[in-house]
Design a binder for these strands. Structure first.
Length: 459
DNA sequence: CACTGGAGCCAC
DNA sequence: AAACGTGGCTCCAGTG
């Protein structure tokens, strides 16, 4: 893994300098708030511990493990549930222990298990995030590290603390943690990200005309279309939730190298969780039945799927996806991997060579992932230079793979956004002629006096 | 007491 | 033929 062009070397050299400035800038932290949040979370943890301590199952647990009883041990809980209480254990880890993650535990309908999961979540929030952030904060500022030398793909990483995995999906936990990240006085938090960075970047490699047309035409929607195909639904019946499944259980996994068996299982399971406008998941199973799909199927890699099963249907959807809809993309994947096998390395569009022993999915994913980050890195370097050149007070304070987090002086907001848009969607295309799709950014701004949690989209 | 691998979970 | 890519952090359990 090394730069093979001067431009590649220069990108990392300047990137390193720019990110060190980002580290030095740091983000302002509301430490008083964090201390309150830790107390609040601790109270909730105590409540859960009380609930657990007064449950009959905990008596069984103590009887089994005595002085070794550890409420944080999933292994011990597994023994109680699957050996002592005789719940069936359907999944095991690769070392043969019962799998005890959230998905498995959600299938066991006991208040005790619900308390346990709640407790684990709260402990994670407290230790990794609230306490982790506070530990690394000095004089009210947090300075996470951003590394360019640690990843296989030429992406970046972040540590002490990791700024790139602060909760956002679970809205309550997101608020609890992100509320701590604030802007300097008379500044506001602004986050700008490339929309569909990896999909757009992939298109620059494979140049599939149908993918490019999806990217160029805002009326087209790949995730909606694929959700429709997976569930055999017309466009108008695709709810937000169904589209979400198309995106996160079919399209992205397929891009990363997943295959129909896995997708079929996950989509089928997702149906049971769905709450639809017209009825619930059951109505979707019924709908599939009316289309001749009666069950999931065995999903055994050794056997070919049976007619009338969902796995058979997904096999057809997948075939269509790579051999008809995105035929050029599908062929590119084959060629790209074949060329790697022949040469023993592959080169990225941003000027790097990746050499060594890699699996098929790695060979296909690394260049896309790495180059997508390099769009961001190039943009960050340039934006920072311009902020300096115009003697602006706004500062870049963080970076998350395809987004830039800044602490923007309120009077500079308009200028800042102009610079960012110019660099990220216009200048970069002049710098890298191989960018053959139009680039778009999503902008989110928090009000002055607000926190990172308060960022809102729409220009 | 230090260290390590596994498992889990957070992000893109 | 194979089968979801990249990271970091925490806790547990086992080892030396």
């Amino acid at each position: 893994m090394k730069p093979i062009t001067d431009a590649g070397y220069k990108l990392l050299h300047e990137g390193c300098i720019a990110l060190s400035q980002v580290e030095a800038n740091g983000m302002k932290i509301d430490t008083k708030y964090i201390n309150r949040a830790i107390i609040y979370t601790s109270n909730r943890i105590d409540k859960m511990l009380y609930q657990i301590g007064h449950d009959k199952i905990f008596k069984v647990w103590k009887k089994e493990f005595g002085i070794r009883t550890n409420i944080g041990s999933r292994e011990q809980l597994g023994k109680i549930l699957f050996s002592v209480m005789d719940y069936p254990c359907s999944v095991r880890t690769k070392t043969g222990r019962p799998k005890m993650d959230e998905a498995v535990l959600n299938t066991i309908d006991l208040p005790f298990v619900r308390y346990f999961l709640k407790l684990e979540k709260l402990k994670k929030v407290r230790s990794t995030y609230l306490e982790g952030i506070l530990r690394e904060t000095t004089d009210g500022y947090l300075h996470p590290f951003f590394n360019l030398n640690t990843t296989q793909t030429f992406r970046s990483s972040s540590d002490h603390p990791n700024f790139q995995n602060i909760p956002i999906r679970d809205i309550k936990i997101a608020k609890l943690v992100r509320r701590a990240f604030i802007a300097r006085k008379n500044h506001q938090v602004v986050e700008v990200d490339y929309s569909g960075a990896e999909i757009c970047n992939a298109a620059c490699y494979h140049k599939d005309p149908r993918m490019i047309s999806y990217i160029k035409n805002p009326k087209k929607d790949l995730h909606r279309d694929m959700a429709g195909q997976c569930f055999i639904l017309p466009r108008k019946e695709i709810t937000k939730e169904i589209r979400y499944c198309g995106k996160n259980i079919f399209v992205f996994p397929q891009f990363y190298g997943d295959y129909y068996l896995h997708c079929a299982e996950n989509l089928w399971n997702a149906i049971s969780q769905m709450k639809l406008k017209k009825g619930d998941g059951q109505s979707l199973y019924k709908h599939l039945k009316s289309e001749g799909i009666y069950k999931l199927g065995a999903c055994n890699p050794e056997e070919s799927p049976m007619e009338g099963t969902f796995e058979k249907h997904l096999q057809e959807v997948e075939y269509d996806f790579w051999n008809r809809r995105f035929k050029v993309y599908g062929q590119w994947k084959k060629d790209w991997y074949y060329n790697y096998l022949k040469k023993g390395y592959f080169d990225t569009l941003t000027g790097f060579r990746i050499e060594g022993i890699y699996k098929r999915n790695e060979v296909i994913n690394y260049p896309i992932q790495g180059s997508a980050f390099h769009w961001l890195l190039w943009s960050l370097i340039r934006i920072q230079k311009l902020l300096k050149k115009y003697k602006m007070r706004s500062l870049i304070v963080g970076q998350i793979h395809d987004s830039i987090v800044s602490d923007v002086y309120k009077k500079e907001l308009k200028n800042y956004l102009e610079i960012v848009k110019q660099v990220m969607t216009v200048d970069i295309c002049k710098h890298w002629k191989w960018i053959i799709v139009p680039l778009k950014v999503d902008i989110e701004v928090a009000p002055v006096g607000g926190s990172w949690y308060d960022k809102k989209g729409g220009e």
